[in-house]
């Protein structure tokens, strides 16, 4: 698998070039019907050990960009999960519901999150995503560090 690396401090976030990426740090890989999504190594690194994953909507349904889809909780963090783009939600990964640890163990494989059918896919390739990471990494560090003190 060809992959590039983005350095998060001393941590190597591996960004495979066999798939595309959304700006909210999800990878998107073409399937027969549409795209399969999961968290990038960058996102998983920020989250660390995932304890809990919860979806607030039922598949199948239509979703709009940045719609709240669910929430995720890890050892160190919590976040709302927003949709990466407009589309038709086909299904959530059923195996994650009882045990979300695959997100950590196999983020680019078994740890996928959901599948969307998209009419106008507009994603970044690995190189563009790494460039995007370069732009947001500083801000991410500040946000995290700032929150520690709030």
């Amino acid at each position: 698998m060809n992959a590039d690396v983005f350095m998060m401090g001393e941590f190597e976030a591996v960004i495979p070039s066999d798939r595309l990426y959304a700006k909210n740090h999800m990878w998107a890989q073409q399937t027969d019907k549409g795209f399969r999504f999961g968290f990038s190594a960058y996102a998983v690194r920020l989250l660390q050990d995932v304890y809990f994953l919860d979806w607030e909507i039922d598949a199948p349904c239509e979703i709009s960009p940045k719609q709240e889809m669910g929430s995720i909780e890890s050892k160190k963090a919590e976040s709302v999960i927003y949709s990466p783009c407009q589309g038709h939600l086909e299904q959530f990964n059923p195996s994650l519901l009882n045990d979300p640890s695959a997100i950590n163990v196999d983020k680019y494989g078994e740890g996928w999150l959901f599948e969307l059918v998209i009419s106008n896919p507009d994603f970044l390739d690995a190189a563009q995503y790494i460039e995007h990471l370069g732009n947001v990494w500083q801000d991410a560090q500040r946000t995290i560090k700032g929150q520690m003190n709030q």
């Binding site: 740090h25 920020l46 919590e78 976040s79 709302v80 927003y82 947001v136 929150q147």
Partner: peptide
């Protein structure tokens, strides 16, 4: 034990 909210980094307004 205080959790960091990453929502802003994951696409929140």
């Amino acid at each position: 034990s205080l959790k960091i909210d990453l929502s802003k980094l994951f696409g929140a307004p």
